[in-house]
Amino acid sequence: MIRNLGKTVFAATYFLLAIPGPGEAPPNHIDLSKFPATQLDDIVVPLPSEVFNVLDKLGTPNWQEQLREPVVRTRGEREQIALLLGSVIAEGFVAVEAADKARVKQIGRDVLELARAIGVESTVLTRTNSIVTKADAGDWIGVRRELDGALTDVKNAMIKLKDAQLAHLVSLGGWLRGTEVLTAVVQKSYSSDGADLLNQPDLLRYFQERLAGMPPRMRNKPLVNRMQKGLDEISPLINQRVTPDSVRRINVITGQMVRAINSRA
């Protein structure tokens, strides 16, 4: 009893002392160039839903028109399967926007097949079952969360399996398909708000560096090489003010890259 009383008193004291406040005022400006490299993390790759969340607010594009039927190959090189897995998960977001139950359910099954092909099936089993169930119920926000979760779980499982390189390819596959869709939507009705979403030069540089840092046995594979060349083409377009013409060019390049991911066996 004394112990409980003590805790209660301590809780009250804690609350009184720990009144939330702004804390120490942070400096208005910091010199990022002087930040020690050891204290600088890798860039955080945003989730597809962070982009789609903004797209939701920009209008109501014809999402059905953006849907693609990816060719899901579960045999072949692991690099291709990883890229494909990322792009299929991104396709899931388009299917959610289009409220296409059948496509979302098929994508859930495809994600499971691809995850199986690279040895991380058990990681996403619950997620993919949930995608199917939530799609049936029309719980689109729930499906988005499961797709985000599947992407994160797959990447974390690969990192645990010492396959971080493949995890980067999953992220890249998702980013490419997401960027292709984003540019297609922005192209249809150009607005500076829409084009602003493409201002991601550091993220692009991150992917370029990840590909460049891969061991030669991976980096020299034709598909990975193709990805590197595509990113190099996109880079100057993203590193300047994004114009209607650069949106169109990025759409063409990412479209070609996604087709390469889908078509090459």
């Binding site: 930040f35 204290q39 600088l40 993390d41 860039i43 945003p46 982009v51 969340n53 708000d193 979403l197």
Partner: peptide, 14 residues
């Protein structure tokens, strides 16, 4: 007093 910086792409509208 040690700091860590985590770079992140954030989107206008979110």
């Amino acid at each position: 007093r040690e700091q860590k910086a985590i770079p992140h792409t954030l989107f206008r509208g979110n």
